[in-house]
């Protein structure tokens, strides 16, 4: 089984996140860039399959600036075999249409059976990339899986996944090649051990530009027309409960016609 895991580097959610007021893009300068937690879980899902079947290979794929190499290194130190880094200044600020075209083109360059991605990144939150890739590649997809297992191998086998979303529990079955996305209900990522950290530097990272992928006419389908920062909320009344807080709260509700 050849698995490709999609990895994204995002601004740390524990710090303040901002949009660039000119472009409406995430301002990546203000917060520390970290590997998205959901990407780590996607890597873990792939490595769990590798643990069960040593012949499985796990390739990481990211599109991002030079610093995104850190995210790949983290994944390689966890145990992935190699990585592809699509790195091109022309792709800065790419929308999901361009991103899906570029990643689909990169996926077409090598054989694989399964693509595993996070269900949505913590910065974009779009959640559409996996299905867009599947559509461009003409393969089946199953998104938002809370767990999955393989029945049989890449040839003739199936992937059976469970998802629980929008009030419905489902079991989905699909063959290979295919694209799946996983939720944060999948197991936590393993910690890289020392051997993995030391070995990560020796693992191959292929660097590709848009031109390497034969893509030159990259025009975003969507453009941002305005960005407005909402004034931050102000703290209102704060009282310390001395036994009368419930009455004061009820008065507050009444004053706002909430009761």
């Amino acid at each position: 089984m050849k698995i490709i895991t999609l990895v994204k580097q995002v601004p740390d959610t524990w710090s303040e996140r901002r949009l660039d007021p000119e472009t409406g893009r995430v301002d990546r300068a203000v917060s520390e860039a970290v590997i998205d937690e959901i990407s780590e879980r996607a890597i873990e899902a792939a490595l769990a399959l590798k643990d069960a079947d040593k012949s499985t290979t796990v390739t990481l794929l990211t599109m991002g600036p030079a610093g995104a190499l850190d995210a790949l290194r983290k994944g390689l130190s966890m145990g992935a075999d190699d990585a592809v880094h699509i790195r091109d200044d022309a792709l800065q600020g790419a929308d999901v249409t361009i991103t899906s075209r570029v990643i689909a083109a990169a996926l077409l360059r090598r054989p694989w059976d399964l693509v595993i991605a996070g269900n949505e990144s913590t910065d974009g939150r779009g959640g559409v990339l996996p299905a867009m890739l599947a559509e461009r590649l003409g393969v089946a997809s199953a998104t938002g899986l809370d767990s999955f297992e393989l029945t049989g191998g890449a040839a003739g086998g199936d992937l059976v996944g469970r998802r629980s979303a929008d009030g419905v529990d489902e079991v989905l079955r699909l063959g290979f090649p295919s694209v799946v996305s996983i939720t944060e209900r999948m197991p936590d990522a393993r910690f890289p051990n020392f051997r993995g950290i030391l070995g990560a530097k020796k693992k191959p990272v292929e660097v590709l530009t848009a031109a390497d992928l034969g893509l030159t006419d990259l025009h975003p389908a969507v453009s941002v027309v305005s960005v407005a920062e909402r004034p931050p909320r102000q703290a209102g009344t704060r009282i310390i409960d001395d036994g009368s807080a419930a009455a004061a709260l009820a008065d507050f509700f009444a004053s706002r016609r909430l009761i």
């Binding site: 290194r73 130190s77 910690f191 890289p192 020392f194 950290i197 030391l198």
Partner: peptide, 8 residues
């Protein structure tokens, strides 16, 4: 290397 081991 030493930074990566420590960070890990």
């Amino acid at each position: 290397t030493s930074v990566e081991l420590a960070t890990g």
